[in-house]
């Protein structure tokens, strides 16, 4: 599984405005509700926030992976929200978080959720610091989508 196969330009929010964990999760939940990823954005908001309260979903290098499972889902849905200024998302390396890959999966099959996370982790590893920089420079969702496709189609090195 690869990130570009789960994303599309319309699921990329290029100008995330939130500055706190709560406001970022709210903004992303509303966005995914508008894009019909979920029926009820408030339920998504509650689930994602509950997950963050168990421990931050931040990864090193300016990336976070807010996620939850929802019974209504027929397939996994992924969105990307980009914060130009960055957010203090309690990351393990203390850096500001700029990229939020938010994954909502059905409870079953259980492996699906792990595969979505693995796809994001592979992309983050391949792109290294350059991924965040290139996505921050993207002026619109289409450009951001192109950055991700280019990274994923690049040969493993």
């Amino acid at each position: 599984m690869q990130v570009h196969a789960l994303l599309s330009p319309e699921l990329i929010l290029i100008d995330l405005k939130g500055k706190t964990v709560e406001s970022v999760i709210r903004e992303i939940s509303k966005f995914m509700g508008e894009k019909r990823c979920v029926k009820d954005w408030e339920k998504l908001y509650e689930r994602l926030l509950a997950r963050e309260s168990l421990g931050s979903t931040s990864l090193p290098g300016g990336i976070a992976v807010p996620h939850c499972k929802m019974e209504e889902m027929k397939e996994a849905k992924l969105s990307l929200a980009i914060s130009k200024e960055g957010v203090d998302f309690n990351s393990p390396d203390g850096k500001l978080t700029h990229l939020f890959f938010t994954a909502v999966s059905p409870p079953s099959p259980p492996n699906l959720h792990l595969q979505v996370l693995a796809a994001i982790a592979r992309l983050a590893r391949k792109g290294k610091e350059g991924l965040v920089d290139k996505l921050l420079e993207s002026e619109n969702p289409k450009e951001a989508m192109q950055v991700i496709e280019n990274e994923e189609f690049k040969d493993e090195s």
Binding site: P60, P92, Q115, L117, A118, I120, A121, R122
Partner: peptide
């Protein structure tokens, strides 16, 4: 490395 561990996608 958390990124490394996640790429394993290892289920129960």
């Amino acid at each position: 490395s958390i990124l490394g561990l996640l790429t394993l996608a290892a289920p129960v």
